[in-house]
């Protein structure tokens, strides 16, 4: 049997829907980690079933709560709007055609003091998610295990330097995906690890030549 019993008895989550509530919270939480900087406003473009059944499933509250870093089983999700007001966070929801992405898709824009971060992703069902695009990069981030996202310049040897640093720290790579905008330009490396990623390892990768940004995503 290749299905874990905790996929059957789980997830532990805030209702009412694993795809429209738990998955929404998780997607926005991962997106906020990817944004990696403080933001004062966040916009959610929603399509398909996500847009149509948003308020009935509390998808808006879940997305907002996730953007504020709340986990999918945090009972404060219900009061996400009040919490956002307390924190001075502004949020906007609008309908957008994202059918190319998924039935339950979201386009999340974070507004920082010095620019924006855009993240596109979807809730796949059962609380599972996928981030498909970050800014100009196509990607595939599921966040089902600790994940390292390394933005860098597309130069020979960067990938092997990153994997060597991880190996030296005793970390095992489960899956590695590389995406680039164009040859020699900005590139993005998504690395799923078998175990937790200690902060100092992220810092060591950040020090490598041609690496511009390192994001550690651990929401398991």
């Amino acid at each position: 049997m290749d299905i874990s019993i905790f996929e059957v008895l789980g997830p532990v989550m805030i209702g009412p829907s694993s795809s429209h509530t738990a998955g929404a919270a998780r997607l926005a939480r991962v997106a906020a980690l990817i944004a990696a900087r403080p933001f004062s406003r966040v916009d959610f473009g929603l399509s398909g079933s996500f847009a149509r059944t948003c308020r009935g499933h509390g998808t808006n509250k879940a997305l907002l709560a996730g953007a504020m870093g709340l986990a999918a089983d945090d009972e404060r999700i219900r009061n996400a709007e009040a919490l956002a007001a307390q924190r001075g966070l502004e949020a906007r929801f609008y309908e957008e055609d994202l059918d190319w992405l998924h039935e339950n898709a979201a386009h999340i824009t974070f507004y920082h003091a010095d620019g924006q971060t855009e993240v596109w992703g979807a809730s796949l069902g059962g609380g599972r998610i996928r981030v498909s695009r970050i800014g100009g990069f196509e990607t595939d981030i599921r966040a089902e295990c600790p994940t390292l996202v390394v933005h860098h310049l597309d130069r020979p040897g960067v990938v092997s330097e990153v994997s060597r640093t991880l190996a030296e720290s005793g970390l095992n790579i489960a899956v590695m995906r590389l995406a680039r905008q164009a040859k020699g330009q900005a590139a993005s490396l998504v690395i799923e690890m078998d175990g937790a990623i200690p902060p100092e390892v992220g810092e060591r990768v950040r020090q490598l030549q041609h690496v511009t940004e390192v994001i550690v995503i651990d929401v398991s």
């Binding site: 059957v8 008895l9 789980g10 532990v12 209702g15 694993s18 999700i77 219900r78």
Partner: peptide, 15 residues
Amino acid sequence: VNASMGRICAAPTAG
């Protein structure tokens, strides 16, 4: 509890 956005354990689904 599920409908009120309370904490539940899906078994096998939330509904």
